[in-house]
């Protein structure tokens, strides 16, 4: 059974149809890249999978581990192992990283019938995961994302991914706005987290990230549909030719 099976997914926000029939199957341990021009529906797709309420699913279905994902609240999805790395991580003044992560992690442990992690073990785990993405441990006593640099915010997302150990991680343009060094750090972090029972959906505008996170499958999204799928060479082709030919094909189809 595939980890994630999406059939004919349609979604809209207010009166605007954005997803117009997405089909996608992701097997356990696979890395799928979704590329596409601005406005093609990539971020909406990520948002719908994570359960953002402003989007209305009008048709289609999403099976996650055989269960109806769309029927779950955002927190249920997270507890079942779905993780979204935000394109624009939210600042939470007054909520310390430490408290935030402890509560999130213990929620997940409780859901799995495990005891809360003892303070010592929690701190040790935090340090290890922070080191994975070279995140300054001092940030742990600060408010979540509050006053973090752009790069720190993105690394913080991958740090949380490492802490929460999801089975399906969706990375929404985690590379955008990162310089090449930061990109490498984030990619190395993600690669270190690849496991046979953890799948990734990596949404990106540029091929560059895929030099570092090598995908099993590359999909191209245009006008709310996946219009082409292939191996990693498809990403290089897109880089070379741009998105126009895809768009033309999408319109022609």
């Amino acid at each position: 059974m595939a980890l994630l099976e999406i059939n004919n997914l349609h979604a809209r926000i207010e009166e605007q149809n954005i997803l117009k029939g997405v089909d996608l199957t992701v097997g356990a341990g696979e890395v799928h890249a979704i590329m596409g021009p601005n406005g093609s529906g990539k971020s909406t797709f990520a948002a719908v999978l994570a359960g953002r309420e402003e989007f209305e699913v009008t048709d289609g279905d999403v099976l996650y581990e055989g269960n109806d994902l769309l029927d779950m609240e955002p927190d249920e999805r997270a507890l079942e192992g779905v993780f979204l790395a935000f394109q624009y991580p939210v600042e939470l003044p007054g909520v310390s990283m430490n408290n935030f992560l402890r509560q999130a992690l213990n929620q997940q442990r409780e859901h799995r019938g495990e005891e809360p992690l003892p303070a010592g073990a929690f701190l040790k785990r935090m340090r290890e995961c922070a080191a994975l993405v070279s995140l300054d441990p001092q940030l742990m006593s600060r408010s979540v994302n509050d006053g973090f640099s752009g790069g720190e915010k993105k690394r913080n997302e991958i740090f949380q991914l490492a802490m929460l150990e999801p089975r399906l991680a969706i990375l929404d343009e985690t590379d955008s706005g990162l310089d090449i060094d930061a990109l490498r750090i984030v990619a190395d972090g993600v690669n270190a987290l690849r496991r046979s029972d953890r799948s990734f959906v990596v949404i990106t505008h540029y091929q560059r990230l895929l030099n570092y996170i090598v995908p099993d499958v590359v999909h191209v999204m245009a006008d709310g549909r996946i219009v082409r799928s292939g191996d990693k060479s498809l990403a290089l082709e897109l880089e070379e030719k741009g998105y126009d030919w895809i768009r033309e094909e999408a319109v022609a189809a």
């Binding site: 997270a78 939210v90 509560q103």
Partner: peptide, 12 residues
């Protein structure tokens, strides 16, 4: 902010 926290597994 609420969605961010819920997406990490916290109840509403």
């Amino acid at each position: 902010a609420l969605f961010y926290l819920r997406s990490r597994g916290m109840s509403k």
